[in-house]
Nucleic acid binder design. Structure first.
Lengths: 158, 158
DNA sequence: TATTGTTATACTCTATAACTATA
DNA sequence: TATAGTTATAGAGTATAACAATA
């Protein structure tokens, strides 16, 4: 086996540019719905149900005070609601409002649709292979860092 | 051909999570060098040589006033220098300082190293397939939007 | 007139440190 | 004491609109 440096560099560059592209798509879709990318990310993360602040900080890789502000602004816009956690009076659960659900689902679908459109040209086998390859990368990262990746909707970290 | 919705969704989710991961890596490396991700991105973009403000706004997808601020702060930190463009007295070229070059290269290498490490487990064929598939996506996006992607170092858009 | 870039302004996002309330 | 979350503060990032200087 030869020490091929070239492909490695090209590959990482491809990864970075892909991330760049996904960010763009995410930003554009967010704008269409008058959301910041961070707000869209929050809404997408809450689609599956209410989540506590601490869990959100882990999912979003934010400090708790940063999250407080993000939730404050989202709440002020009527996108989410703070609910008291019945089992722990210190904690609260963040929940989508009706409007938040509506916009969150739209944003989620918008991102999925656009990315899907970009990949429509790929042969089905390639898509599957890509999916599993990416799954491998994510698993590898989880192993290395000990941190699990979020298991939810299209969501981008800042 | 059956209308398979499932794989499409999984695939786009994989893309989004991959982008997420790359963002994380980029953010961590930036922090190590006491840079914001945006500053790191700027430095990486300038490694190949000086670039004008207008071209930078296109590469970074920023409004010109946002870029003015970004460059201001980077200049204040001694990372970049504004140079007058000799052929157009309205324009200026942004150039890395010695320190900016040093840190920019370190950040670039750091990102490449970490991403490379994550992909070391992948079979070589998969890496090549991934690379070409991503290349296809980028090309598709360029066609659809008419905008070229940047052709430079590991760089993430916010 | 059009283009290049800056300034003024207003938000949003983010982190650190100190704090309150509950466990 | 430890944990969940907020507040205070400061700085960074971003966009819109109005502006200056040059083309």
């Amino acid at each position: 086996m030869v020490t091929t440096k070239e492909p490695a560099l090209r590959f990482t560059e491809a990864l970075v540019r892909l991330a760049h592209l996904v960010q763009q798509v995410f930003g554009e879709v967010s704008r269409e719905h008058d959301l910041t990318p961070q707000q869209a990310q929050l809404l997408c993360l809450l689609i599956d149900g209410p989540v506590g602040m601490t869990e959100l900080t882990r999912a979003l890789h934010l400090e708790k005070s940063s999250l407080t502000g993000l939730v404050d602004r989202a709440e002020k816009r009527g996108l989410v609601v703070r609910t008291r956690d019945s089992r722990d009076r210190r904690a609260c659960l963040i929940e989508l409002s009706t409007e938040g659900t509506r916009i969150g689902v739209l944003a989620h679908e918008g991102v999925a649709r656009q990315l899907d459109a970009l990949t429509r040209e790929l042969p089905e086998e390639h898509r599957e292979l890509l999916t599993s390859a990416i799954g491998g990368l994510l698993a590898e990262h989880t192993i290395r860092t000990g941190r699990a990746q979020q298991a939810t909707a299209p969501v981008i970290t800042r």
